[in-house]
């Protein structure tokens, strides 16, 4: 059986990563920015599993588990902060979050 070459996975991950970066830089909704960050984390995960398969070793796979765990912790903290902001401002548009500047 012929399998998909690793370079395809890396190319896909580069595309996902770029989309994630663009999402963070261009979108103004804090939730969408947050989703884009998750997309970036998952593009890195894709590289890890693709190479773990190519090298036939476990380290890359294990790394992905840890990244997923960290991402879950980050979601918990991030959503808590977003909810706090929303309660105060009734908005999660990052352009409205501008009390601190100078």
């Amino acid at each position: 059986m012929q399998s998909v070459p690793t370079v395809y996975y890396v190319a896909l991950s580069a595309i996902l990563f770029t989309l994630g970066v663009l999402g963070v830089l261009l979108r103004r909704n804090a939730l969408i920015i947050f989703m884009s960050i998750e997309l970036m984390l998952n593009s890195a995960n894709l590289v890890f599993v693709a190479f773990a398969r190519e090298f036939g070793q476990q380290a890359g796979q294990v790394f992905v588990f840890f990244v997923m765990t960290v991402a879950a912790a980050e979601v918990a903290v991030g959503l808590a902060l977003i909810v706090t902001i929303f309660r105060a401002k009734r908005s999660i548009n990052v352009d409205d979050i501008n009390q601190l500047k100078g």
Partner: peptide, 22 residues
């Protein structure tokens, strides 16, 4: 606001670093 800004910027940069690690 400080917490959210710190969080968004920190998570963004650490995701970039993670891609470098990968």
């Amino acid at each position: 606001e400080a917490g959210l800004k710190y969080f968004l910027f920190g998570a963004f940069t650490s995701a970039i670093t993670l891609y470098g690690f990968s």
